[in-house]
């Protein structure tokens, strides 16, 4: 049996008509939205942006690619994490090894919008 705070045996629960479900993190993080995905950070993360190894990033494939935002990038080998930077009017990306140009071998897959850390 599940007791939600409403059906009591002795005194009727005054909360009966005021019940609310437990906080729904999937809702807060919009995880059910078709363009939202969760990904896992491998390697050391981006310390200056407080992103650590094993963090879960919630990413939005529709968010605008603006300088300063953190992006998930598709290279021919793997998915990478980088910071978008405007250099001389052109959007580029800073990876752990340095600046690189965006092109079809360095494509923006999504923009990081939220951070989830399960171990604190």
């Amino acid at each position: 049996m599940q007791y939600r705070g409403d059906e009591t045996t002795g005194f009727p629960s005054p909360a009966r008509d005021y019940l609310q479900p437990v906080v729904d993190l999937a809702e807060i993080l919009s995880l059910r939205e078709p363009g939202i995905y969760a990904v896992r950070v491998e390697g050391e993360g981006i310390p200056e942006r407080a992103i650590q190894e094993d963090d879960i990033l919630v990413v939005d494939t529709c968010a605008e690619a603006l300088p300063g935002r953190i992006a998930i990038l598709f290279t021919p080998q793997d998915a990478r994490l980088g910071i978008l930077v405007r250099v001389g009017g052109i959007l580029q990306v800073r990876l752990s090894e340095g600046m690189v140009h965006l092109d079809e071998d360095m494509e923006i897959w999504a923009i990081v919008t939220r951070l989830v850390r399960t171990k604190v």
Partner: peptide, 10 residues
């Protein structure tokens, strides 16, 4: 599956 999420390298 939370243990099988896409991995992004840094």
């Amino acid at each position: 599956r939370v243990n099988e999420l896409m991995k992004v390298k840094t």
